[in-house]
Structures are given as C-alpha cells and as structure tokens.
C-alpha cells in the first residue's frame, strides 16, 4: 500500500518539466562554453603549472642536462637543514626574513596611503579628475620603468640626495647600503601600489549608505567620529581585500629587486621569489627552486587565512 502510494507520489516528469530541464542544461552548457577558454588557460597555465611545480619539488631536475631523479622530500629536508644550521647564509631563509619586514611595512604604508588618497579624492575638490590621474599614474606605469627611475633617484648623486643636501643632510647611498636598501624599495613599492588600492577604497567609500552618516550627524557625531565609528568599520571588507592582495603581492616581490639590487647588498634585499629564480635559473637546481615555491605557497596561504580570521568581513548594513 505504502509502495503504491510512494509510486503515486513520485514526480512524474511532465512535458513542461522536461522542457525546463533541457533549457537549464542548455543554459549551463552555454555558460561553460563561454567559460571554456578561461578554464582551459587556468587549468593549463595556473593549476597545471602549480601541480607540475609541486611534483617537481620531489625531483632533482636539471633540464636538458640530467634525467630527472625522484628524491622524495630531500629538497624540503635540505631547506629545513639550511634554515636550522646555516641561517646567516641561507638565501631563501634570509629572503623570508626580509619579506616579513617588507610585507609588514609595505602593507601598512600602502593601506594608509591608499585610504588617504581615497578620502582626499572623495571630497568635491576643484581639479579632482586631474588629481586622480596624477595619483593613479604610477600604478599604470611598468614596474620595470618605475624601478629604473627610482634607481636614478636613489643614486648617490641623484635627486633625493640632492634635495636632502639643500638642508645640509648627507643622504645615504640608498641602494648600496644594507641598512637603507630594503626601506628604499619599500617606499617605492608603497608609492606605486597605493593608487591601485585607492580605487578600491574610493569605490567602497562611494557605496557607503548616506543614511548612517546623517543619523550620526543628528546624534552630534564629529567628523572624526564619523570616520572612526562609521567609515572605518564599514570599509573592513575592502580593507581585508587590500591587505590580503597586498600581502600576496609583497610576498611575490621580484621585478623591482631584479632591476634595482639583484638581492644585494649582502642579501639585504633578497626576497623568496628572487631566491627561487636564483636557485632554479642561475644555479640550475630546478627541483630545489620548486620546493622553495611550495614552501612560499604554504606560507602565503597560512598568512591569508590568519588575516581572514582577524579582519571580520561579515558586515551587514
């Protein structure tokens, strides 16, 4: 009886139902067909390359020279051993140390500067469009070109030291002094990346509900109160995005280093990615380079997860 009832209750596909199913399927297939070029590129050049890189880290590889040899986790053991016993001279380890300092200051710098730019350009200023263009210009300039310009600016006889000499300050040899080389590159990076993040902040600022500000003003909130208790909290999702993207970008710093200092002086500006490049493409230890890349990936992943935990993005308004 029950079985009969169940049979009776089971949905019988009607002609209309089948037609809508067919339509949905066709719609999905169309969507996937549109996505296909992107998916193909992503699978080949991002996912595929990542999986290949991970596999490479388990091999001793010298392309075109030796036959690749499976060595298990030996590359990772080597990294661990160097990190423990040869910390002062281990380029990748020094790079990780440098990048933590670099990321910390660059992320704070670029976030603060981007927010300041956005707040400034959110005001009804005269010549705002021109100002926006001027501020955004470094972001659309090639990083190699910007790096070369800064090499000249930081030169011992360059514009920065010439400017300092007006105030009788003897500027350092920025890029050749281990104490100033990394900060010099940080300043350049903040200057060039902040405008990109400014756009995100600006978009977020323009989407904030005006009603909240009006209500707060009625309650007697000052300008600073509005910023501290309304703007900043509501910008948290954008801030998370900026901090996360900024962190990943900072950890992947390469081109500026390759152009300006090649990791010197005395490894003061070496970064993990530069070290990976050096190991794989200059010393021909491709497997070891791949294992460094895997370690870097794990670090970036953990840092991003931690950031996500601390910056609550679940804002309702």
């Amino acid at each position: 009886m029950d079985a009969t009832m169940q049979t009776k209750q089971a949905p019988v596909p009607t002609f209309t139902h089948r037609r809508s199913l067919k339509r949905a399927l066709r719609r999905n297939i169309t969507a996937y067909l549109f996505l296909l070029p992107f998916l193909f590129l992503m699978c080949t050049f991002i996912l595929g390359a990542a999986v290949f890189g991970l596999a490479l880290s388990l091999y001793h590889v010298n392309y075109g020279i030796d036959t690749p040899r499976f060595i298990g986790l030996d590359n990772f053991r080597y990294l661990w051993d160097q990190f423990q016993n040869n910390r002062d001279n281990f380029e990748f380890g020094i790079g990780l140390k440098n990048i933590v300092v670099y990321a910390f200051f660059v992320i704070i710098g670029q976030t603060v500067l981007a927010l300041s730019y956005a707040l400034l350009l959110n005001q009804p200023l005269k010549g705002r469009s021109l100002l926006r263009t001027a501020i955004y210009l470094p972001s659309v300039t090639s990083s190699v070109a910007i790096s070369l310009i800064f090499v000249y600016l930081y030169n011992n006889g360059g514009a920065i030291n010439a400017f300092l000499s007006i105030f009788h300050i003897h500027g350092p040899d920025w890029l050749n002094n281990p104490n100033t080389a990394l900060p010099a590159i940080m300043i350049m990076n903040v200057y060039t990346t902040a405008p990109t993040f400014m756009i995100l902040f600006l978009a977020a600022l323009q989407g904030l509900p005006v009603s909240l500000y009006e209500a707060a003003k009625v309650d007697g909130a000052s300008g600073f109160d509005l910023f501290r208790y309304i703007t900043l909290p509501l910008l948290r999702p954008t801030m998370f995005l900026i901090v996360a993207v900024g962190t990943i970008g900072a950890f992947q710093t390469f081109d500026q280093i390759a152009v300006m200092t090649q990791g010197g002086p005395l490894n003061a500006t070496v970064t993990p990615v530069y070290s990976i490049y050096d190991t794989a493409f200059k010393q021909y230890h491709y497997g070891l380079g791949a294992s460094m890349a895997a370690v870097l990936f794990a670090i970036i992943l953990v840092v991003t997860l931690i950031q996500r935990r601390f910056i609550d993005t679940n804002i309702q308004y």
Binding site: N75, Y78, D81, N86, N89, H285, L288
Partner: peptide, 8 residues
Amino acid sequence: QSQITAVP
C-alpha cells in the same frame, strides 16, 4: 661549501 655539497 654549503651550496656545493649539500644541495640534493
């Protein structure tokens, strides 16, 4: 020396 001998 560490770069020459220890690399797997």
